[in-house]
Design a protein around this nucleic acid. Structure first.
Lengths: 412, 412
DNA sequence: ATGAATAACTCAAGTGACTTAATTTAGTTG
DNA sequence: CAACTAAATTAAGTCACTTGAGTTATTCAT
């Protein structure tokens, strides 16, 4: 078992790209992100506190704050009286300083959101999409961008787009029409980036929702969590070390097609099946339609209020499969918590959480702080909100940049 | 659905720790890591090439190289004749520059490895452990450290320890005796770090093996892969974005207890079961013992050569479960490849890989480059080698440091 | 009230690591 | 052997950080 010598294999290969080196400019950019994240996650604070948390000098903090104030990204909240000594000047993110736009492209509807840097959802609208071809849809998106960036103060930090995944896969037999034809992740990003002149980030609904939850919801003080999302399919958005798990090809989290054995299956019930078969919006609608009942979001709310037996049956069927999946996720990711979200009324999600019976996993630890499973906080606009959160996340969060093959000049 | 205002909740909370800010010293350290990783992954190269790949100036590269040469971590390979112009001076990692030590603590045996910075396994030994109490074992480890650091040239970069996980979990009913009592991850790390005065990294066998494979095996040019490891149990080491997935509490990858439905199960065969029940060394030994056959590594090699029907039966039983698990992992992680490794003869692992029938997943993409599943390259010493790879990984790889609560002075 | 104590901010100088630009060096080519 | 080329070297300049002394606003004790 001699350990493989690395050199022989790496003779005339194209060089492997590696993390990018840093220089003063990039250094500043990094520290800037650190401070912005600090303010986002901890709320208003003074220079000294920032310096301590970020482990840099207060002077360095001061210089960066000067920049951020000049750009309008920060607000001065005045001095906070706090015991002895000079009271610290509190700084906070300025909601009017910057915005992002989020677009959720679904089968026949476009959801548009405007989010400000303070995490406030400033605007939400739903536009019908008569023609699902990429050209018309992207034109409509570009028009919305032009209109909305004029309507709201602050610079536009970027655009986030949510589209159903997976991308570029052959023969994924799902239940229901989850994918759009003629669309690719990259073409959408490139097209829009060119039309609008700002960064564009594309992801699937589950990942976007997870990022939304990470920035503005239950994930705010959590660095490892799994979010199960009921959308076009049933997907997973995994946050690992404060970063969304995208996978090598951007298709991570496709749990809908995973075959799970239901936990504590009642005798006579179905055995192992793809998660989406019984634990998805699609399966719920299927059951309601079979019973001749309507299935809009409002209807679901009503069904739950009225104690609909069909909804109840769906909950009973879905819970064992979902429980098994959560067990799998806990054992694989060892997260701090699991969050359930999606296009279901909050009360229904709560009912679903209550019915779960998760097997014993590595999450059975002593002194657990967070609930093992909880309902998401960002509500039904989750994915569209998450879409808007994507550029925000990418512009603000400190990260390890990689030098992608052949590009970008050196400075900054 | 108003997005939750963040400030109200974060009033009098303990501050959230965030990524660490950077200053010139930390910047240098980062670039140093970048260059070391560059050399490790691409083999020898000149200043200019490094500068281009790391996207910093050749001068900056020159300064860092000067440091590294002075420390003995680099070797000058002379000029490479390469067409016109001044031929570049090739630099390479100096195998005699630094070493790491790896210890795999198993039920009654301690495996010790010495790895140099060039990725060469310099030494491997197996020591019986009569007393499994922490005190005696750690003393033995400390003695080995003292002895080996004198025997090999180069500075000792750190110590890696592999122990069976999971840690700190209640009521995980596994098959077989996979956990050690009276041990905790942190106490081992602290104890050894104090005794030896170098950084100590502790992880489970699967994660360590994955890191070993990442640095010196099939993972060298892969940034996303899943490694399934047959060791004390059956574990997963997931590499996401060149980093091992450890989870919030260090217990990620516990796939042995996940209940999977076998793929294409033969009629009459067992249904859903924990992966480890049928796809583990334990289950193989169980079958061999029931048939009255010996089960050492050498025996397994012989069984395979002789076409043992028991081994064959195990392969037939294990493959459907393993296939299902690989399908799950592909859908969750969307990796570039899946690697199978562990304490089995290479030929047996190959046979196992051949029998797999993985369901359709997001890995069914067009133009796939790497094999979906392949056997690991680092062999049976995998975990012990991986243990030694841990400090190496932590000392060399560029990463995003986090400011852990309350510690460490600011400079550098 | 007043002064000491305290804690955060500010200013100015110093330092480290990087970039830029000009020069040197060592090979290749005609 | 001179012209050409590309890498390395040298020296100067820049940027962002740290350090340390001084300033300011508030609390507490007299």
């Amino acid at each position: 078992m001699p350990p493989p010598s690395k050199t022989d294999a790496s003779k005339a290969r194209t060089p492997v790209s590696v993390a990018m080196g840093k220089n003063p400019g990039r250094n500043r950019n990094h520290n800037r992100r650190v401070l912005l994240e600090l303010l986002r996650r901890n709320g208003p604070m003074g220079r000294k506190a920032m310096a301590d948390l970020a482990q840099i000098s207060t002077q360095a903090v001061g210089n960066i704050i000067e920049d951020l104030m000049a750009e309008g990204l920060l607000r001065d909240l005045g001095r906070l009286r706090s015991g002895r000594g000079l009271p610290p000047i509190q700084y906070a993110l300025n909601p009017d300083g910057a915005i992002t736009l989020g677009f959720e492209i679904a089968v026949s509807e476009l959801t548009v959101t405007v989010l400000d840097i303070g995490g406030n959802l400033r605007h939400e609208e739903h536009v019908p999409l008569p023609d699902m071809a990429p050209g018309p849809v992207l034109s409509m998106v570009a028009e919305s961008v032009a209109r909305l960036r004029a309507d709201y103060p602050g610079q536009l930090m970027g655009i986030g787009v949510v589209m159903p995944g997976p991308f570029g896969i052959e023969g994924m037999s799902g239940v229901g029409p989850t994918t759009l034809h003629g669309w690719t992740e990259t073409s959408v990003a490139q097209d829009l980036a060119q039309r609008c002149g700002v960064p564009v980030y594309v992801d699937n609904d589950a990942n976007a929702a997870a990022v939304g939850e990470l920035l503005f919801g239950k994930g705010q003080n959590v660095s490892h969590f799994c979010q199960i999302y009921f959308g076009a399919g049933t997907g997973l958005g995994a946050i690992v070390d404060d970063q969304p798990l995208r996978g090598a090809f951007g298709n991570a989290g496709e749990i809908g097609h995973i075959i799970v054995a239901p936990v504590d299956a009642a005798p006579g019930s179905a055995g192992p099946a793809p998660l989406e078969r019984f634990a998805s919006l699609y399966s719920l609608r299927e059951m309601l339609e079979a019973a001749g009942q309507p299935a809009s979001l409002e209807d679901l709310r009503r069904h739950h209020r009225d104690g609909s037996p069909v909804l109840d049956a769906w909950l009973s069927t879905a819970a064992p499969y979902l429980s098994a999946m959560i067990g799998i996720l806990e054992n694989i990711f060892d997260p701090q918590t699991v969050i359930i979200g999606g296009k279901l009324p909050g009360a229904v999600l709560d009912a679903l959480v209550e019915r779960l019976a998760i097997p014993s996993t590595v999450a059975n630890r002593t002194g657990e702080r967070l609930p093992r499973v909880q309902r998401g906080q960002t509500g039904q606009a989750s994915a569209a909100l998450g879409a808007a959160a994507l550029p925000f996340f990418n512009a603000i969060t400190p990260r390890l940049d990689r030098a992608e093959d052949g590009l970008a000049p050196m400075p900054d």
